[in-house]
Design a binder for these strands. Sequence first.
DNA 1: TTTT
DNA 2: TTTT
Lengths: 156, 156, 156, 156
Amino acid sequence: MAGVNKVILLGNLGADPEVKYLEGDNVVANLRLATTESYKDRNGNRVEQTEWHDLELWGGQAKIAEQYLKKGMQLYVEGKIKSDTWQDQEGNNRKRTKIRVLSFTMLGSKSDNPGGGAPGGYSENKPASNPMANQPKAEAAPDISAPSDDDDDLPF
Amino acid sequence: MAGVNKVILLGNLGADPEVKYLEGDNVVANLRLATTESYKDRNGNRVEQTEWHDLELWGGQAKIAEQYLKKGMQLYVEGKIKSDTWQDQEGNNRKRTKIRVLSFTMLGSKSDNPGGGAPGGYSENKPASNPMANQPKAEAAPDISAPSDDDDDLPF
Amino acid sequence: MAGVNKVILLGNLGADPEVKYLEGDNVVANLRLATTESYKDRNGNRVEQTEWHDLELWGGQAKIAEQYLKKGMQLYVEGKIKSDTWQDQEGNNRKRTKIRVLSFTMLGSKSDNPGGGAPGGYSENKPASNPMANQPKAEAAPDISAPSDDDDDLPF
Amino acid sequence: MAGVNKVILLGNLGADPEVKYLEGDNVVANLRLATTESYKDRNGNRVEQTEWHDLELWGGQAKIAEQYLKKGMQLYVEGKIKSDTWQDQEGNNRKRTKIRVLSFTMLGSKSDNPGGGAPGGYSENKPASNPMANQPKAEAAPDISAPSDDDDDLPF
DNA sequence: TTTT
DNA sequence: TTTT
């Protein structure tokens, strides 16, 4: 039976993308995304809780990520949960879960809001951190509806 | 900044729920849900890929799960990703990811379709496997829009 | 800025699909889907509220809908909101909203559960109402992850 | 059968909220949100398509909207489709669809990015347009996971 | 370990 | 007009 496995995240990048070029034209980018939730505990104190997600992008999306995504940027992401399982040296079953990104949209970065940052902050590299602002979208837009191009032939 | 951490799953239960009653009135149910995706590989062969998800439900939802959910049933789930991190005996950082369920809806089970099953099949326990069919909804309906009741006071 | 416009529905078809073959190989299917929510009002009475959605499918998905979808079936749908605006004869601005379906998954129909229906029920046409059960999936599976094939060249 | 009726939008406000205080402590806010999608047509030209959504918020969320939301701000929204149906003076069946917002998150506004705006732009009222930046979140955060408080007793 |  |  066909199923549904869908993840929607909106958060901030904890680091610049890590990109690897593999044999056979494949490219993979790994991202760390933080989603923060805040709520009041039973004593009425506000608590912030951050969840860190390991994102994985392939192909053209990995290249766009490499070019445009920077630590601190806010990102909207759609994808699916994917886990690797293996046995470690002690023979224990291990599992690692990541999010395979199917589409994403950049929403800004800390440098978009210089008034809110620390002195110095990100303001110097602002043009670099959001270079799409003044470019024709056709070149680079990681369009929300852009289908992932590699579902059928990736080795997993 | 407030973030979004949302998971939507539609799949089948790999086993009956495992329910634990904790001190202080807390109840937790753990479920294993399989979401299956099928696609054609580069050679045109159809491939099925199953992802297994660890679901966690608390409070009233755990009790509904205990009463009504059975291995094989099809379930629609909304929730969020939650991971535990710890150090193992060797001092390595470990992480385990699960889905904290915020709402769910039962969609059926094998026993809903006796004609498709093996002789004997599930038909005898059909009433047991879907007891809500003839009950007033007010009693038990795990309503899609039922808010989770314990976001604020659980220890995580 | 790229945006997000996403709809997720799970409900039942109020009627068989209405399919139109247009010039130039285009096919469009229109569906009526009911999503029902139940809750208690302030007096503790259970209330059911049904929302009817107008769905529109194009191309290959419209053909799959024509073949397999029947009144009463339960459907999971992903899509986006799309509205037509026009002026009526009195010169008033009018607007009609529908859901452009991007992917869908059949979850069953009344005939999957003959024991729950009236005598006679739907059991005779069960094979017709769910013909995919015994067919190779490659032929017809309206796979959840099947990208819509016509985003770029439809006249709207 | 419990159903699912879920809408996820990320876009920009076309105008300030319109807020009405009703008898009996009820408050309703109406918003216009634009979601823009860009794609290439069959001739390779980039096309932008904007969909306008009518949003409706009730109760505490309406008050937060009144205080903090301004024309141009970027908003993430979760909600459900709700339609009103009636007969017009000619006796025709009419239908109007809107999005009942269940939670939302402010993502910024044009004034967050002064470099991208027209001269004059929004920069003067930036503090006003995003007053939450320097406030304790407890006061006003329209938290993503804040359950709507009025599902059970509103007259629709 | 589920389901088709 | 669906479904439970």
